[in-house]
Computed example of a mutant assay.
Amino acid sequence: MKKTWRWFGKKDKITLSMLRQISVEGIVTALHNIPNGEVWDLESILDLKQYIEDAGLEWSVVESLPVSEAIKYAGSNRDKLIDNYIVSLENLGKAGIKTVCYNFMPVIDWIRTDLNYKWEDGTSSLFFDKIKFAYFDCMILKRNNAENNYTEEELKKVYALDKTITQEEKDALIDTIIVKTQGFINGNIKEGDQNPVAIFKSLLALYDGIGRNTLRENMKYFLERIMPVCEKYGINMCVHPDDPPYQMLGLPRIVTSEEDIEWILKAVDNPHNGLTFCAGSLSSGCQNDVPKLAQKFASRTRFIHLRSTEILEGGNFIEAPHLEGRGHLIDLVRIFEKEDTSLPMRVDHGRLMLDDEKNGYNPGYSFYGRMYALAQMDGVIETVKNEIKENII
């Protein structure tokens, strides 16, 4: 596997020279300054590519070239936005960048309720608390019929929480769910926006009446439109699984399971329509056997996120250590190394440790925590390579 690292551009506090020193080979990044739906011009792409190469690295993967909401819900300007997307892909192809990670999650990207959940050893990680999320959904967002998505026992806990939660805790929950985890990745809501809850509710309303089948057909339409330019330039589109991989907030989610992935790959059966195999996202759904999915979809996997989660009682889940949890990352390395030794992978959602917390890194994207995880995975990869060489596996 090629060891890559998600980097947020020239203003990232983690510099490319730092990454060279810890054995990173490729960079995963995007033109984060360009608003969703606008064209990525060739000059800007080449400028960033050259900046990365001057540091002795390569731009291995685009993550992400965002898919605008109107493409997902089929708004009146869908075709214009897809036209812009095609031009951006064409410019990436001209620049020689061949792998594009994207997602098709409506409104909201990855969802957590705690960004600094403390472990006994003093480190911290991302955490999803279902009752806190239900509280946000029912009592803060006040989504119509939200209570129907939760059990009676869960709602009792929500109402009990309502009696003790402080305004400061409510504000932190809003900030975590719809601002901090979204804004730095070309999200619909960013730091400093006034009344983010109202903005969020207006975005949810765009999907009124849109179910899973409609969203699937909209995704198929999008993929069919962009495949010709992908074929022309050899660009691999790699859809990222939904995180977490189940229905939330009344929104349809369509990349949650084996059946979903199979539908997408067959609906547009083109080798350039591929998968980002995110072990963390997939492992947070109890329906998913992650090694089994890796084995089944290895031939259409174009990019790998190596992280793991552990599902806890009550529907909670936590980012697990990279050598533990339901992601079974050692098994995945064995599967993917046998499939293609050049696949780009990046470790993901490292813990906050040592000086990470005081440096203000983007949530899930610590330096020391990810460096530690990269070292673990580097050792696993080298061990697996030796196993393959010695015909042990």
Score class of each variant (00 low, 15 high):
Glu259Ile: 07
Glu152Ser: 08
Ile318Cys: 02
Tyr233Met: 05
Ile14Met: 01
Ile27Asn: 05
Thr15Ser: 09
Tyr361Glu: 04
Glu168Ala: 13
Met345Gln: 14
Arg6Val: 09
Asp331His: 10
Ala172Asn: 15
Gln247His: 08
Ser68Cys: 05
Leu354Trp: 08
Val255Gln: 04
Gly379Cys: 08
Ile393Leu: 14
Ile264Phe: 03
Asn362Lys: 13
Asn273Met: 01
Phe133Cys: 10
Ile111Asn: 05
Ile108Tyr: 04
Asp129Met: 09
Gly327Ser: 01
Asp289Ser: 05
Leu282Ala: 07
Glu387Gly: 03
Asp340Trp: 10
Tyr361Leu: 08
Lys2Gln: 12
Ile210Asp: 02
Leu19Phe: 09
Asp193Ser: 11
Asn149Asp: 15
Thr256Asp: 04
Asn359Lys: 14
Ala146Cys: 12
Gly209Cys: 02
Lys49Pro: 01
Glu154His: 03
Gln21Val: 03
Asn148Glu: 15
Leu206Ile: 00
Asn188Val: 01
Gly369Pro: 06
Ser23Pro: 02
Glu339Asp: 05
Arg216Trp: 04
Glu120Asn: 13
Arg300Val: 13
Leu173Trp: 05
Ile97Gly: 06
Pro244Thr: 11
Gly122Gln: 07
Ile34Asn: 03
Glu169Val: 03
Thr164Ser: 15
Ile97Phe: 04
Trp263Thr: 12
Cys278Asn: 15
Ile330Lys: 13
Ser308Cys: 04
Phe184Thr: 09
Pro321Trp: 14
Gln21Thr: 09
Cys230Glu: 03
Pro106Glu: 01
Gly56Ala: 06
Phe136Met: 07
Ile264Val: 03
Ala70Asp: 02
Thr99Arg: 11
Gly26Ile: 00
Arg307Ser: 12
Gly93Asp: 10
Trp59Met: 08
Lys132Pro: 06
Glu390Phe: 09
Glu169Ser: 12
Arg326Trp: 10
Ser17Asn: 12
Tyr102His: 13
Tyr150Arg: 10
Leu115Cys: 14
Gly250Lys: 05
Ile264Met: 06
Asn145Tyr: 11
Leu126Lys: 07
Ile131Pro: 04
Leu354His: 04
Pro196Thr: 03
Arg216Tyr: 05
Met371His: 04
Ser23His: 12
Ile165His: 08
Pro321Tyr: 14
His305Arg: 12
Gln21Ala: 14
Asp378Thr: 15
Val197Cys: 10
Thr164Gly: 07
Val290Ala: 02
Lys190Cys: 13
Pro196His: 05
Ile34Tyr: 00
Leu352Ser: 10
Ile210Asn: 00
Glu169Asn: 07
Gly187Ser: 04
Cys230Arg: 00
Thr113Asn: 09
His305Phe: 09
Leu89Asp: 08
Thr256Met: 09
Tyr102Gly: 05
Ile392Gly: 02
Met248Cys: 08
Leu275Trp: 00
Asp331Arg: 12
Arg370Glu: 07
Glu147Arg: 00
Val268Glu: 03
Ala55Trp: 02
Ser281Leu: 04
Ser257Met: 01
Gln376His: 11
Gln247Asp: 14
Ser76Leu: 05
Tyr246Gln: 11
Cys286Ile: 15
Ile45Leu: 06
Lys190Ala: 15
Thr15Glu: 02
Ile226Trp: 00
Ala160Asp: 13
